[in-house]
Nucleic acid binder design. Structure first.
Lengths: 230, 230
DNA sequence: CAAGAATATGTCAGTCACTGACATGAGTCA
DNA sequence: TGACTCATGTCAGTGACTGACATATTCTTG
C-alpha cells in the first residue's frame, strides 16, 4: 500500500463553517483599490483561458499570460499561487459553496445522503461555468500537470470539506474512523466519472442527470458481482 | 463539481495483465551494462533517502542527490522523471504487483472482495519497506509537492489498475459505468486512512490489521447515520 | 580479436515556474 | 494636505528539468 499522510493534520471543525462565508476577498468590494485588484485578477484569468484554449496549456508561459493581461509576471504570482491555479481560479469559491451546501444538507437521513444532496445542489450554481469546465477537462486530458493539480489540490480540498462535515455529523474522529474519508473519496470519484462522461459528450448530455446517477451508484459498489451489467 | 478527465482515455484491458509481468527493467539482469545502470539507480535512491531524511525534502536539491551518488544531475533525470519519483522509486514495482494480485484475486465472490483481497495480499510484500514508507509518509506530511505527487501519480496509477481489473471482471465499460472508478477511489481512500493511522503511531501498530479494518469499512459507508459511533 | 553498433554518462547551455528585495505610484484616511 | 497602506513594477536570483553533443564503456558481429 502506498504511504500517505494527515494531509493537514488538524482539520477544522464544523463550528468554523458558518464563520467562513465571508472569506472570499473578491466578493467584498472595499473601494477603488480592491476593485482594481479584482479587475487585474479577472484580466489574468481571462487572458489565461484565452491563451490556454488557443495555444494549449504547456505552450503558454506565465509571462505570456501576464503580458496578455498587461501586468508583470510578478503580479500574476501575487494573485495566483501557480500556473494551474489560474485555470482553476473559480474552484476556491466552489469549495466554500460546498462547505455551505454540506452544512445546509446536514439534516439528511444519512451521511451519504448529505453528501449527495450537497453535491447535487452545487451543480445548479455550476451550470454557468460550462465553457470553463469543458476547457478544464480538455486541458486535464492533455496535460499531466493540470490533471495532477486537480487531484492533488482541488479534489483533496473538496474531500477535506466532506470529511469535516461527515465526521462532525457522526461525531467521530476522522483520524481514527476511516469511513468519512472513504465516503468522501467515493463521492469525488463519482464526480470525476460523471464529469468524464459529460466531457466525452462534448457537454451535450445533462450533467445533473449524469452526476445523480453516478452518485447514486455509490450504494452499489458493495454488491458488484460478475453477473451484473449496466 | 470539479472538472476532470479520462486520465488516459484508453485503458488497457486485462488481457495485457499477464504479459506485463516482465516489464520491470531493474529485475532483469542482462549483463554488466544493465547491472551498472541499476547500481547507479540504487545509489541515487539511497542518496536521496539519506538526504531527504536528514535535511528534509525541500531543502535537498536534485544536484545534492546527484553529487551524493557521485553522478551528474543530468544522469539523475535519465533515471527518474522527477525529484518526487526518487522518493517513490519502489512504487512502480508495487503497482505491477497490484496488477498481478488483482488478477490472482479475480475468483473472489464480488468485486469489492477482489479488491480487498488483492490489497491485503500486497501488504505482506510491503512489510520489508517499513522505514521507507515511514519516510514517505513523513515527507508527504510536510511537503505539498510530495503529497501532491502521491495523489496525482501513485494513487491515480493504482486506481487505474483497479478500474481495469474490476471493469474487465464485470464486463462493463469503465467510461460508461462509474462503479469501478468509485470502488477504486473508495479503496484508495481506505488505504490512505490506514496509512495515516499507522504513521500516527510511528509505525508501531499492526498495519495489516489497520488496513483490513479500513477496507472492510467500505461496506458501511452507505448506512452512516448520526446515531452510529466507532 | 578487431571493428562497429548501442548506450550510459558527462558537460553545457537553455527554458520556465516561482520568489525575495526594493522602489514607485496610486488609493485611503486622518 | 500629508502620512500611511498596499498593488504593482523591476531585477536578480534559485531550482527543476531538457536538448544537443561529446565520450567512454559495454555488447555484438564478422
Amino acid at each position: 500500500m502506498p504511504s500517505e499522510v494527515p494531509e493537514e493534520a488538524a482539520v477544522s471543525t464544523a463550528a468554523t463553517v458558518a464563520a467562513a462565508v465571508d472569506s472570499r476577498p473578491h466578493l467584498v468590494d472595499g473601494g477603488r483599490r480592491s476593485r482594481k485588484k479584482q479587475q487585474t485578477r479577472q484580466r489574468l484569468v481571462d487572458a489565461a483561458d484565452e491563451l490556454f484554449a488557443t495555444q494549449g496549456y504547456e505552450a503558454t508561459t506565465t509571462t505570456d499570460v501576464a503580458e496578455a493581461a498587461d501586468v508583470a509576471q510578478r503580479t500574476l504570482f501575487r494573485h495566483f499561487a501557480s500556473k494551474e491555479a489560474l485555470l482553476y481560479a473559480d474552484m476556491e469559491d466552489a469549495r466554500l459553496d460546498l462547505r455551505d451546501a454540506l452544512a445546509a444538507a446536514g439534516g439528511a437521513s444519512s451521511a451519504i445522503h448529505t453528501v449527495i444532496q450537497a453535491l447535487l445542489s452545487l451543480e445548479a450554481n455550476f451550470a454557468e461555468h460550462r465553457e470553463r469546465r469543458l476547457l478544464q477537462a480538455r486541458l486535464a486530458a492533455t496535460s499531466p500537470a493540470v490533471s495532477g493539480y486537480f487531484r492533488a489540490v482541488i479534489q483533496a480540498g473538496w474531500e477535506r470539506e466532506m470529511i469535516v462535515a461527515i465526521s462532525d455529523r457522526l461525531a467521530v474522529d476522522p483520524l481514527e474512523d476511516p469511513r468519512p474519508e472513504i465516503l468522501a473519496g467515493a463521492a469525488m470519484s463519482a464526480c470525476r466519472a460523471a464529469t468524464r462522461q459529460w466531457t466525452a459528450s462534448g457537454g451535450s448530455e445533462d450533467y445533473l442527470g449524469l452526476l445523480q446517477r453516478s452518485l447514486e451508484s455509490i450504494r452499489e459498489i458493495v454488491d458488484l458481482r460478475t453477473a451484473a451489467a449496466v
